[in-house]
Structure formats: C-alpha cells, structure tokens
Write a protein that binds this DNA or RNA. Sequence first.
DNA 1: TAAATATGTTAGACTCATCTAACATATACT
DNA 2: AGTATATGTTAGATGAGTCTAACATATTTA
Lengths: 164, 164
Amino acid sequence: MGTSIKKISSNMEDYLEAIALLQKEKGIARVSDIGRLLQVKKPSVTAALSTLAKSNLILHERYRIVELTKEGQRIAGDVQERHDMVFKFLSGILEIDEKTAQADACKIEHSISPITFDRLTKFIHFVEIGLNGGSPQWLKSFKHYLKTGKRLSCKMRQVALDKN
Amino acid sequence: MGTSIKKISSNMEDYLEAIALLQKEKGIARVSDIGRLLQVKKPSVTAALSTLAKSNLILHERYRIVELTKEGQRIAGDVQERHDMVFKFLSGILEIDEKTAQADACKIEHSISPITFDRLTKFIHFVEIGLNGGSPQWLKSFKHYLKTGKRLSCKMRQVALDKN
DNA sequence: TAAATATGTTAGACTCATCTAACATATACT
DNA sequence: AGTATATGTTAGATGAGTCTAACATATTTA
C-alpha cells in the first residue's frame, strides 16, 4: 500500500489546511501566500513542504506551486471540518465573539478525537433542527442567561425572549 | 513587580499540573513521579523543572522535592479548572467515554481562551441547574437522540425517557 | 529582450523538548 | 555505620520548527 499511516503534527495539519484554503480561494497555493496565512517566513514554508512531500501529502517541484495529493486533501478536509464544527459550537451556542472563536477553533481542531467530533456534530445537528426547525427554547433561554445572569422562570419566557 | 508575565508552553503547563496533582495525592512531588505521570524520562523532568524554576513557578533545590510557588499554583489551578470543565462537557453532555474524554480534555485544556472557559462554565452551570434541579428535558432528549438517532416527538417523550 | 522585481531555496543558527549513558546524591537496610 | 538501592543530575545527541542572510529562479515590465 502506498499509504503509510503515520501521525502528522498540528503544524503540518496547519500547512495542509492553509494550502487547501488557498487553492479554494485563489486557485493556487504559493509559498509566500502560505507563509502570510500562517505567519511564518518563507524558509519555514519550504521546510514544511519538504516534510509534507516526503509523506506524500503534497506535490511540489522546486520553484513551483503546491498541490495536495488525495491523502493530503483528505486530511485538510478533516481538519477543516473539525474547525468548522468547533467554531459553530463556540460562536453559535456559547455566543463567543468571532475572533476569539476562530482563534480557539484553530487550536482545538488539532485536539479532538473522532469520537468527540462525531458527538459534537450530532449535538450541533440536534440544536439546529431544534424543536420546530427554529432554535430550541432552551438555547434561547441559555442565551438570555448569558446576557442577564438569570434563568427565566417558565412564565417569564415568552416575554423576555421577544427582545432577543 | 516580581511577576514577569511571559506565556508558558503547553508542556510546561502539563508539568505544573502534574506537580499539583502529586502534591494533592501524595503530599509531595518528586522527579520520578512526575516522569511516570507524564510518561517522560527523568532527565526531561529535570530539564523542565529548571525552566519552571527560572520562571519562578516552582521551588526546587538539587536532589530535593518540588514545590509550587504562588504563581505556579495559580497556573496549575487554572489548567486543572479548564481540564475539568472540558471533561465535564465531553462526558456529561456529549456522553463521551471517560478515557477518550480525559485524553481530549488533556489537549483542549491548553487551547481555550478565558472567554471560552467562562462561557463553557456558564453553559455547564446552566445545564446542571436544569429546569427543576434535575437535568433538563432537552438534554435527555439529546441523549436519546444519540442512542437511537431519532428525535422524540412531544408525545413520545415521557414514555421513552423512562427507560433512561 | 534585458533589467527590475517578486518569489523560492539553501545554509546555518537557535529554541524547545525529548532521549540515553554515565555519574552523583540520598534513603533504606542489614 | 556502611553498603545496596532509589532517586536525581549532567553531558551530549536528536528531531521538529522556526529564523536571518545570502543566493537562485521566475515573472513582470520598460
């Protein structure tokens, strides 16, 4: 089998993610753009690419643009999915501001197991469906709790939630 | 001020956490025990301790046991709190098995911002209080959804949830 | 097309965290 | 007390990831 199953570091995941993003946004991924995106200098990118190429996750000829292999795409996609799910949870449920949520998601995306990803996905799905297609009552109640520090009693609910 | 505000690495956070745990569990923290706990060899521990001592997070004399400074205690406590909160969320809400939840929490504990910690805390508090002291209906409903893949209609609820 | 500019690479150094092998100190036991 | 065993440290190497300075190639443009 061509696919050696060795674990890849968080940093390398970041590079793959950046490459995928650039390909999607600009069509191609170049060393400088990767560096700009990840806030590292070009030689660091070159070094990383060399590592990724050895692991058959990218294709890269000297002085040329970078391409993801099938396996590279797969990993980049997985990381993206984890990122998006965590971000959705942080911003959509915990009501964390976008910047912070993105920053945290960028780190947490490297730390969650397949099981946790699966459950988080289901949780978000559960919330999104809600009771009748809208966001469920309890979530509204939680968001009110975040704003006021107070739970709503049953009767208060209808009233208070209209402002939201 | 004696307190220099430099950021500490995930690894150093782990060492502080381990030291705090050992102090709590066994009264004292020794190099070997720290190594055993973190799965690293003794010289790695010695090296780490030297770093932590330079940052005034621990007190350590050659060949003696390790003590946390005030600041060291504070950081260790923060990491612990983050760990516990994440673990609670993963195991108590997402129903992830203990081993996986612990493993994930051990990584995520280094990645969440104060804001996220705050919101997660409030979320768990919100859930724990529930509607009437018990766990809220929606959580039971979510857990049922995890088991069966199906949402409960309003009428199904009482029936199905008794088995749980 | 030839020079100017943008982009990419190499070489070499640094930090962090780890290891093994060899050595030093402390503790426990007879 | 003096030796055997636990425990801790030093020295030196390694690997990952980063940097700067200098160089090489490609691309743009006059």
